[in-house]
């Protein structure tokens, strides 16, 4: 794409003591828009029509990143910006990645622990509704259909190492 005419426009700005700004040619902007629309179509198509399982997410994310890059570079003028602004953006992205990956890393480590508990204590949802009730007054309990008296329990249930059975110690109650 040609940049010749915007250089002229740019120079015109300079005469008036204008801040150092870059004027993006219209043809470039329209071209980017068309590309973005095509990529949007592509992302819908791959997700709906092609089945690569886990890879669908990867493909969708690659396309989204490509679209994002186009927006940042051209619509947001990053190509012509000061280095600091790019650093600000990249730092933000790095820290988001750091935050997500470390939290996810830890979460995956202890997920089994949670699944074991859920397998052994399947009645946790009513429990939640009752705990709402504790905070949000009885009318909420009525509204959500929680029923305190319905709580079955064997509080002295023996500790089973495997916790395979559902009638374990954690019966619903409001704690």
């Amino acid at each position: 794409m040609s940049h010749s005419n915007e250089h002229a426009e740019h120079a015109a700005g300079h005469d008036h003591g204008e801040a150092h700004q870059h004027v993006v040619p219209l043809s470039l902007l329209s071209g980017i828009l068309v590309l973005l629309l095509i990529l949007t179509g592509l992302t819908v198509f791959t997700a709906r029509e092609l089945h690569f399982g886990e890879w669908n997410l990867v493909i969708a994310m690659i396309i989204a990143c490509a679209k994002g890059t186009l927006v940042v570079l051209y619509f947001m003028h990053m190509r012509w910006e000061k280095m600091f602004n790019a650093i600000a953006l990249i730092t933000a992205l790095i820290f988001v990645t750091l935050f997500i990956s470390v939290s996810a890393l830890d979460s995956f480590q202890y997920e089994d622990n949670i699944n074991n508990y859920r397998a052994a204590n399947p009645t946790r949802v009513p429990q939640a509704i009752i705990s709402d009730a504790e905070v949000r007054a009885p009318e909420l309990a009525a509204e959500t259909g929680a029923d305190h008296e319905a709580a079955p329990s064997t509080p002295a249930a023996p500790a089973k190492e495997s916790h395979e059975s559902g009638d374990g110690a954690a019966a619903p109650h409001a704690g």
């Binding site: 830890d106 979460s107 946790r124 429990q127 705990s131």
Partner: peptide, 18 residues
């Protein structure tokens, strides 16, 4: 009660700490 941090709704309180 969106259930992201509240374990009674399937949430994860340790995630809140992160």
């Amino acid at each position: 009660h969106v259930g992201i941090f509240d374990p009674a709704l399937g949430g994860d309180p340790v995630l809140f700490q992160h």
